[in-house]
Design a protein around this nucleic acid. Structure first.
Lengths: 223, 223
DNA sequence: ACCAATCTGGTAGTCACTACCAGTCCGGTA
DNA sequence: TACCGGACTGGTAGTGACTACCAGATTGGT
């Protein structure tokens, strides 16, 4: 069956992607993003420049690959529609961050978080990466609005959802920057929750609300 | 005096910039951003490609030039520090938008608004422009935080200011998109105010700021 | 008339990125 | 086992944004 077939292929493909990306982030961190050419990355990874472009459509994608969006959207649709918008979105962002900082990269949590931090630092300090990263947030905003599932007939409600989503994402981004500045010593979900509270008021962030994600049970005994 | 000297030079310089930018936005709108080369813009403006690069460091800057930041910062420092953060920032954004939609481009208000709309549409629909525009917001965020003038010793207060600024800017951006979708038929400051109210609650936007831009004041007709 | 600063233009080069084409590997089939 | 179709990979030759480096032209002030 092409099923098994494709999973085998997909594994190899994912592995080469991982190797290329690892070398890319390392080189970018060592020499700087602009000072490193795609050819440099290809040589370090032992492939041709063509292969790099096959796996990553642009140089920026070597740092920016992100499955964050899917995670957030899933948690949004799972959230109770009775809650206020900001709480639904904020809860999904906090939970997704908890998942990301944990199982980011295979088994080794430590290495996964270091890798995430390295990518984040690049995204923050390199203008081109920062710009594309913020644009990804823009796409994520649309995904969130879709996941909220409000009827699209009411333009006022749609506008409200757009505003809530963009403001929440902006707060999260600020939290990410703060987290990176702290070298990841603090707990990312907590920082995000604090940012949301700072923006929308302390009452908007509820630790164990109607969001039935089991991950949230394991973390953050504070509050 | 080098004063008069420089102002004369600056006038010529500003004029050529204006011409180049006008042709650029026109061509980008007609043929699309990616399908238009810098050489095309240069030919249309009657200058060499080199001259274009002298005035606009990147192709994106042909659309993105923005003095918006300075306006907002000025209004922030002029605002009362007693008000809550979000109100100070939001008020500055609304007022700046009112200034921009009015005196954007010389004498002709109509043309100025059309030009602003054309640029905005490009910024929203073209990925590269959208990304850089959002990154400009990131720089504007820092400017706002600086203008707020909170003491930098307290990291908590600084974080709070960062979050408030980024969330306000995100709400404003959503309002800009909405305004562009409406082809500028609505009043931009009102849309921004509505977005801020949607994000932070109706009570946060107060028309009592003294500046005459508010949805309650019935300035339905321009002029 | 002369000087100095600025504006403008040309040439050559780097680099990201894109077709277009060819070789290679690999799982399943006659 | 020999073969075939679909992938992954690689090379070549471009385009286009952008950047030195250099040379002529214009302009404002002495």
């Amino acid at each position: 069956m092409s099923d098994q077939h494709s999973t085998l292929r997909a594994q190899r493909r994912a592995e080469t992607q991982r190797v290329i990306q690892a070398h890319a982030v390392r080189l970018f961190t060592e020499r700087g993003y602009d000072a490193t050419t795609v050819t440099d990355v290809a040589e370090a990874a032992g492939v041709s420049p063509m292969t790099v472009y096959r796996h990553f459509p642009t140089k920026e994608d070597l740092v920016l690959v992100d499955q964050h969006g899917r995670l957030v959207a899933e948690r949004i649709v799972a959230s109770s529609a009775a809650q206020p918008l900001v709480r639904r979105i904020g809860g999904a962002l906090v939970d997704s961050a908890a998942t990301l900082t944990r199982g980011a990269r295979g088994d080794d949590v430590e290495a996964g978080e270091r890798f995430l931090l390295a990518r984040l630092r690049l995204m923050i300090s390199t203008p081109a990466l920062r710009a594309r990263h913020l644009d990804n947030h823009y796409a994520l905003q649309r995904a969130i609005v879709d996941a909220l599932g409000n009827d699209a007939t009411d333009p006022e409600a749609a506008f409200h959802a757009q505003v809530a989503a963009s403001a929440c994402l902006a707060a999260m981004h600020t939290a990410l920057v703060r987290w990176a500045e702290d070298d990841g010593r603090t707990e990312l979900p907590d920082v995000i929750a604090k940012a949301l509270a700072a923006a929308f008021g302390d009452d908007i962030v509820e630790p164990t609300g109607g969001v039935g994600t089991s991950e949230s049970a394991g973390r953050a005994e504070r509050r």
